[in-house]
Every structure is written in C-alpha cells, then in structure tokens.
Design a protein around this nucleic acid. Sequence first.
DNA 1: CTGAAAGCGCTTACAG
DNA 2: CTGAAAGCGCTTACAG
Lengths: 340, 340
Amino acid sequence: MKRPTIADVARRAGVSKGAVSYALNGQPGVSEATRQRILAVAAEIGFSRSSAARALSGSASDAIGLALCRPARTLGIEPFFMELISGVEAELSARSYALTLQVVADQDAEIAVYRRWWGERRVDGVLVCDLRTDDRRVPVLEELGLPAVVIGGPGGTGRLASVWSDDAAALVETVEYLAALGHRRIARVGGLPELLHTSIRTEAFTQVCRRLDLPDAVTVPSDYTGEEGARATRRLLSSPARPTAVIYDNDVMAIAGLSVAQEMGLAVPGDLSIVAWDDSPLCRLVHPPLTALGRDIPAYGVHAARQLLAVIGGASVGEFRDETAHLTPRGSTASPLRIG
Amino acid sequence: MKRPTIADVARRAGVSKGAVSYALNGQPGVSEATRQRILAVAAEIGFSRSSAARALSGSASDAIGLALCRPARTLGIEPFFMELISGVEAELSARSYALTLQVVADQDAEIAVYRRWWGERRVDGVLVCDLRTDDRRVPVLEELGLPAVVIGGPGGTGRLASVWSDDAAALVETVEYLAALGHRRIARVGGLPELLHTSIRTEAFTQVCRRLDLPDAVTVPSDYTGEEGARATRRLLSSPARPTAVIYDNDVMAIAGLSVAQEMGLAVPGDLSIVAWDDSPLCRLVHPPLTALGRDIPAYGVHAARQLLAVIGGASVGEFRDETAHLTPRGSTASPLRIG
DNA sequence: CTGAAAGCGCTTACAG
DNA sequence: CTGAAAGCGCTTACAG
C-alpha cells in the first residue's frame, strides 16, 4: 500500500499540486475555503509531506542536530543532558522539528559529524555543548555557515549565538554563604579542566577566596565521575589542613564525597559541609540531603532551542543570559564544629 | 558558496552522474580504477550526498527513530535511557545511521509520531521502549509496516522483532539469595504497573515466594521516582510485620529506600537488606553500597539497533534474548539480625 | 486566486 | 563497463 503524495491530495481536492503546497504551508495563493478543503482531504487520507522532498526543494530539513562528546559512562549518570534534551524537545516538538542525536568520541569526530550533517543537508542547525577554552569547533562552524547555538560561555563563542548562565556569580554566592557560616578552609572538586565553564568557576573561586581572605582555596580537577570525586575527596580530607567545606562541580561527585566522608568517620555537616552543583533529585535522596546549586535545566534547553530556531529563521541572535543557579540549603551544610 | 553536488564530482572526474552514484554505493557498474578516482575527487572537494535526495530517490533515509514516553523528571534521573542510547549510537554510527529522538507525552502522541515519521519517510525504522501489557503501539506498527524492534518482552510483541532480558529469572535468583541468607519477609517496590516487565517481575516474585513458602510477598507499585520509592518504603517499614529485605525496581528508588531506613533508625543491612535493580554507578556511591541486579545496558542498545538494521535490511528477525541481569552482592544485604 | 512547469540532487533501469 | 534519461515528491517563480 503506497503512502499518499501531494498529487493524491490535489486530485481528490480537485486542485493543482501547487495549490496543495500553498495550503499546507499557510502561504497566500489559495482562498481560505480552498485551504480548508485541502487540509480536510489531507487529514482524511492521512497525508504528510515527505520530509525528503521538502528538504530537496530547498526547504529546511526541519531537524536540528546535537552531538554529544562524552564517554558513555558519564553520559548515563549525569541527569544534565537528559534534562537538557527534554527541554530542547519541548520547544522542537511544538514546532514539529526533529532532534538528531549523535554520540561522538572526540572533537575531531564531532567536527566531522558537523561537516557531514551540513553536507547532507540533514540538519538545519546544531546545538553545541561542553564549550571548551579555545574551542576548535567554533571556527569550523563559523566557516561552514552552519546555524549554531553554543550552550556555554560567556565568551569563547566567536560570532555564534549562545546561551549561558552566570556560574561565576553562583560560585561567589556559595562561597560567601559558607564563609558566613564560619568556614575558612573551603575546597572545590572541579569538573573537566578543559571545559570553559570549569575555568570560569575556578577563576571565580580563586578570586572570591582572595577577597574574603580565605587561605588554601584549592581546586582539585576531576572528571565528573563518582570514582574521581571520591578520590579527590580522600585527598582533600587527608591533607594536614583539611577543608571544612567542599564544593563539587556535579551531583555525582558530591554524593561520592559524602560517602567518603562517612567512611572516614567525619560527620556531615558537623565536620564537613558539602555543596553540590547541578541540583537534582539525587541530592534529595541521600542522607543528609545535599545543599545544592540548581537551576531549571529543561528551561535552559528550551531557550537554547528557541535561539537556534531564530538563527535558522535568519534572525541575528547574540548571547542569551539564562537564569543564574541559586543555592538551596539542605542538611549537608552548617557552621563548622569548633575544633579543640 | 554552494555545496558540491554529484554533478560537480562527475564533471571533475570526467564521468557521468550515474557512475558517481554507483561508485559511492559500492555497486557494480564502474571499474575499480574509476571508482577510486571518483572517490578521490569526492573526498577532495568535500562532497557528501544529500540525504534528502537519496531518500527521495527511494533509498533509505538512513535514520532510525526513538520516541520516549516518560515525564521529563524521570527521564533525567534514570541512567537507563542514556546508557541504552549510547549503545544504540555505537551501532548506528558504525553504519552511518542517524538517531532521531522525540520525547512524547503519552501513547497517543507516540503513535502519531510514528505515523508522521513514516508518512514523511523520515526514519527507516523505530525502536520501541517501555512495552506495556496489551500495548496499543504494536498493532499500529504492524499495520503501518514500519520496521520496528521492541525493547522488552518476552511476549506481547506481536509479529514485531524484539530484544528482551529474562527478568523473571533474575528476580528468582535474587529471592533465592535473600532466602538463603535467612530472610523470610521479603517485599518489593515495583515500577509502573502498566509496563509489561513490571508485571513479569511481579508474577515471578509471587511464584518464587510461594514456592519457597515465604509469606507476605507484597509488591508495592511505584513510578520509579525517589519520592514514590521513599513513600513505599515508609509504608512497608511501618507495617506490623515489616520486611527484613526489600527489592526495588530501579536504583533511584533503592537509594531513596536506603535513606528512609536510615531516617527511621534501621540499620542497613542489619535490620533491613536492600537490593536494587538496574545496577549503576549510583549504587556504588552510597553508603553502604547497594547489592544490585545489573547487566550491560549499552550492549542491550547495540543489540536492539543491530536487530533493527537487520529488519530494515529485509531480514526476517524474531526475538533476541539478551543477557540476564546478574546479582552483585555489596554491603546492603546480609542475614537478618535475630530479633529478640 | 489557479495551473502548468522547472528544478532540487540523487538512484536506477535502459540502451549502447 | 558507461552515458543519457526518467523519476522520486515536493516548492516556487511564472503565466494566465
């Protein structure tokens, strides 16, 4: 059984194929009555336009691309991407756009995917994640002319549109909160050092600690996995002047840190306060629940998708500053116990 | 700057467009020398075939679809889907297939998406998740003739190909293990009751408990969220004959259950043993680490994708039985303490 | 407001 | 083994 084409609709509605096309695209060229009749016929015979034929005729492919460059093991465990995707989807489905997903091994593979997608006209634009310091993907996308929105920044996005959140401000708020509780030795377990937002956080951390005259504002680099988070925590808690508070760059590492503290016989929050970035349901599941920096990630995805659709639509789009993460104090932070 | 077409390659290589097409598709019709020359020219000018034109000419669209019908909040927190997707991707990228993802609100929306995808020739086939008892999607896909592989079963998949794992066997192994430790009152916090694998597990649970002569083999239905997992656990632990062991249908609920037990002053595993399904890094992060039922989810995705590509290729494909989940004992299970 | 026609970039019989 | 040509299903100027 062949699927109906635009010619079937035209024949059945007694009009030309062109008229059907205009009616379907909501363009002038057909009377309102004709348009309604055509739409009714199309619905009746279950017609939907071939996306291939549309794309070939110069229309958009009505799909956007998202290439994810993270090893499978961290992809699964971090809620961030799925939440982002669900937001992106919400915006795309509303406009009948499809999302093409591709997991890539490294930046070169990612760049090759962009070239292929654009060459094949498979996507109308892409969302770029995990912006790095001095990111090689940015100039390639600029050169290709592939519509793109970078999720990250500020800065480092060249002439590409972007959506970002003020991580520096969120970090400062957190350190000030811990300092107000009486903490003096605050450490941080950071994310992948090559990511731009990691260096933005690290820089902000160093500066605010200097301003508040806190010593030893050490950041231990990590990779977002629980194993590395645990290792970094052990190292920090074994040091002679161990910190009384640790800020983690994601929820998984924070939970691993909590476990390590308990293993080592340290009370949380009595002996150690813990703050997690990327608030998630996980933070509320553990005992004590974790104080966390959170924001609406699905909404972030919605905004990114909206920006991209605007770029695809030909609009001149710049930076969009999303909500700043806010701190939700829970049971894992308190004033440090007086020692001796 | 226009992107190169097959005509550009043909002109530059001094052959017809047809020859280029044959060369690119690895079909007979061109000599090996010519093929190499054509391929070299194509690479040189950065040519890739328009997927739209290919699809329109009757070739495959080289994309498969995955519609996910879960609320955003559970999508993010469960590693399962991301792990599955990373496996699916691994198989697809190797064959240059794209993955089109769509998050849908309910089964009707999902069915509409299948109809649209097929009508638009946007995908060559689909992967179907979260199989339900008496699933309405199955007959629709059969009628449409859309190549599909159902992830789930056994049973309930009609004439569609499927990939499944023997949850009943895994559950029996778990109950026998707990019984061997001396547990008599074992409960279970189940997943969404409408999912087929939930009812398969529930049925297996009831039967093995009867066989082992264990009383009160109660299953509390839930929805995979931490909140519901916590609520179900509170209910179980407050009952007069509280269980000494609980099996959870996912990791998130198990972690929530652990938290509740600790809140209520019950020692794990002394007073309560906990087993989590869907072993994940999370299970190793908490304290004590959770005994869990696990299997290789990315591999499951690889197998599902491979099956689907076979179906698309016209092969007659049936059920594929994947690895059975195996139990990894960790600190959350032990013999129950003798009660006074 | 409508109809006939060209064209998008491929694939694939069909002659040579 | 190669070349010329039709056709996939749309969109969009271009005449009427």
